[in-house]
């Protein structure tokens, strides 16, 4: 925590911005994880219905789309106020909030 009496709203915004970028970067990994999951199910449950798998895969699809929309919405809002970090190794921007 920052004990000095610095204005807290500015750092907090850029902190949020960086976390949003983190979320955007994590999206493909989440997608891979969820979509590769069915590979584990094979042979485990003989009663597993294809209709269930279809529901699962499309469920993942629409869930990811919705998540992406939410992330984009906040990214847009935040980027109007602070500059988004561009590169992962940006030395000038620590995580001190």
């Amino acid at each position: 925590m920052n004990n000095r009496s610095t204005p807290t709203y500015l750092p907090r915004k850029s902190y949020r911005a960086r976390r949003l970028v983190d979320a955007a970067k994590l999206m493909p990994y989440l997608a891979v994880l969820l979509w590769m999951l069915p590979m584990l199910w094979q042979g485990e449950d003989a009663n597993l219905r294809v209709s269930r798998i279809i529901l699962y895969i499309f469920g993942v699809w629409f869930f990811l789309i919705a998540t992406q929309i939410v992330i984009n919405f906040f990214l847009n809002r935040v980027s109007k106020e602070v500059e988004l970090p561009l590169e992962p190794q940006n030395k000038n921007q620590g995580d001190v909030g």
């Binding site: 970028v21 955007a24 970067k25 493909p28 997608a31 891979v32 979509w35 992406q68």
Partner: peptide
Amino acid sequence: SGLEYLTIYIGPSLVMFGWWV
């Protein structure tokens, strides 16, 4: 071949979800 066709669309979706990177 059943649900295998889905991979053809899942691949591009992955790329698009990872647009930032």
